[in-house]
Deep mutational scan, measured.
Amino acid sequence: TTLHFDLDGKKLQYTGVSEEIARLVEELKRRGVDLKEIVRILEELLK
Results as ranks from 00 to 15, higher is better:
30 R>A: 12
8 D>Q: 04
3 L>G: 01
19 E>A: 11
45 L>W: 08
25 V>L: 05
38 I>D: 00
37 E>F: 07
24 L>V: 11
6 D>Q: 06
43 E>Q: 06
37 E>H: 07
20 E>H: 09
23 R>W: 08
24 L>P: 02
21 I>T: 11
5 F>C: 01
8 D>E: 10
31 R>N: 10
24 L>K: 15
33 V>N: 06
30 R>V: 14
21 I>P: 02
32 G>D: 09
21 I>A: 09
23 R>Y: 11
14 Y>I: 04
44 E>N: 09
30 R>G: 13
36 K>Y: 15
17 V>K: 01
34 D>N: 10
43 E>H: 05
18 S>D: 06
22 A>L: 11
29 K>W: 15
38 I>Q: 06
45 L>D: 04
11 K>V: 09
46 L>M: 07
27 E>R: 12
40 R>E: 07
23 R>C: 08
46 L>R: 03
3 L>N: 01
5 F>A: 01
29 K>V: 15
33 V>E: 12
27 E>S: 13
26 E>P: 02
34 D>G: 07
13 Q>K: 14
9 G>D: 06
12 L>I: 12
12 L>K: 04
20 E>P: 13
34 D>S: 11
46 L>G: 03
5 F>N: 01
25 V>E: 00
27 E>W: 13
4 H>V: 14
24 L>E: 15
6 D>V: 09
37 E>S: 09
44 E>P: 04
25 V>T: 04
42 L>T: 04
40 R>A: 10
29 K>Q: 11
38 I>V: 13
10 K>Q: 11
43 E>F: 04
45 L>V: 08
43 E>W: 04
23 R>P: 01
31 R>M: 08
12 L>H: 06
19 E>P: 11
29 K>R: 14
14 Y>N: 00
24 L>D: 10
24 L>S: 14
35 L>S: 08
14 Y>L: 03
1 T>W: 10
26 E>G: 12
19 E>V: 12
15 T>I: 10
23 R>M: 11
15 T>E: 13
9 G>P: 01
45 L>C: 07
23 R>N: 13
42 L>G: 00
40 R>S: 09
37 E>R: 09
39 V>C: 03
11 K>G: 06
32 G>A: 12
26 E>K: 10
39 V>W: 03
41 I>F: 07
19 E>I: 14
39 V>Y: 03
1 T>F: 15
1 T>K: 13
10 K>T: 14
31 R>W: 06
26 E>I: 13
23 R>F: 10
